[in-house]
């Protein structure tokens, strides 16, 4: 991965809070990361960790009443305030989105050709039908959809084909950045593998950076260049995917990898407890109540992001800095809060 190119997207201290009846839910709470051109960044974590909110927040697709703050730089230029009108104009042309359920994104009454025409003309009014067809067939070919089907209706396609269609629709304007939110969750195993292969091949055909949100760690290992592990609204570990999977540095990443059932699973292991309530997250490190290595300092002070030997950035007191740990802070946290199965499930 070359680092010479300018970052496509650079996010600093992004926060997305929702108002709920019980108070503000800090779904994304101080997230920073960079995305390089043509890179696929996997975003993983349990549900309720803010993955989807982060993805939608970056595209300005948030419900009314949500609070967004932070700096987003896109292709070197500071972005207009997220959720502003100017931001929305970038959607589709520069920022794309792929959703979990493809059929909800396709209009059953419109031919595929009309979908493409509408998408292209929304940003480039007056483009001829012929040029739209040319651009569309180009992306459809990469997605493995035969050009004979260009005039078909969405219902004439199978589930996997529909997801390829929505990817093609997101790509036809050649956006520089796409958020794919669990794009394969609704699909079958073999079709999922096909789609993952297509996404992994994208960087060869298009110059698009992808934020791939998934709960399937195998997909990340298979398709992503880098991975960000999210827990309770924060990125706790981010780095080269191979590196993170080979030697995870944050206890949460370690536990997440260990609890995943794969072909080589010989015994079950799991993380006690469940992700915290985002309205009232635990003090200090948000993972400390579930962490097997929790220390005293973890319960009181939020950890500092730190670059570790493998090159990944980790938020965990185990990696220091020593100078900021108060005296005695390194002692193991004996009184781990009682975790009954009731809370976890």
């Amino acid at each position: 991965m070359s680092t010479t190119g300018q970052d496509v997207l650079s996010v600093r201290d992004l926060r997305v809070w929702y108002g709920t009846e019980r108070g503000a839910a800090r779904a994304v709470d101080g997230v920073s990361f960079d995305l390089r051109p043509g890179e696929i960044l996997g975003l993983v974590g349990e549900s309720g960790c803010g993955k989807t909110t982060l993805g939608r927040g970056l595209l300005g697709l948030l419900p009314r009443g949500a609070f967004v703050d932070g700096d987003v730089t896109f292709k070197g230029k500071p972005m207009p305030a997220v959720a502003s009108k100017e931001y929305r104009a970038l959607r589709g042309a520069e920022l794309g989105m792929i959703f979990q359920e493809p059929m909800t994104r396709l209009n059953p009454l419109m031919r595929i050709s009309e979908h493409f025409e509408e998408t292209v003309r929304a940003h480039h009014p007056g483009v001829s039908r012929e040029r739209v067809r040319h651009a569309a067939l180009e992306v459809l070919r990469v997605m493995g959809i035969p050009p004979t089907r260009y005039r078909s209706y969405p219902h004439e396609f199978s589930g996997g084909m529909r997801q390829r269609l929505t990817i093609a629709l997101a790509l036809v304007l050649r956006p520089a950045f796409i958020v794919a939110d669990e794009p394969t969750t609704a699909l079958d195993v073999l079709v999922e593998a096909q789609i993952i292969k297509i996404l992994a091949d994208l960087r060869r055909e298009f110059d698009t950076s992808l934020l791939l949100i998934t709960h399937n760690l195998g997909i990340v290992s298979e398709a992503c260049d880098r991975v960000a592990v999210m827990y309770a609204g924060r990125i706790v570990e981010i780095g080269d995917a191979r590196q993170v999977f080979r030697s995870p540095q944050h206890p949460y990443t370690q536990e997440l990898l260990r609890s995943t059932i794969s072909l080589s699973t010989t015994g079950l292991s799991f993380i006690p407890g469940s992700p915290p309530d985002l309205v009232d997250p635990p003090a200090g490190c948000r993972f400390h109540p579930r962490c097997p290595h929790a220390m005293r300092v973890c319960a009181t002070q939020a950890p500092v992001p730190l670059e570790v030997a493998g090159g990944q950035r980790v938020e965990c007191w185990l990696h220091g800095p020593e100078s900021q740990v108060p005296p005695g802070g390194g002692e193991p946290l004996h009184v781990r809060e009682e975790l009954s199965v009731a809370d976890e499930a």
Partner: peptide
């Protein structure tokens, strides 16, 4: 088709179309 967690083991696959 099962994605492998181990990045060193993942091999290019021949998927059924």
């Amino acid at each position: 088709a099962i994605p492998d967690l181990d990045p060193d083991r993942s091999t290019p696959r021949d998927l059924p179309r």
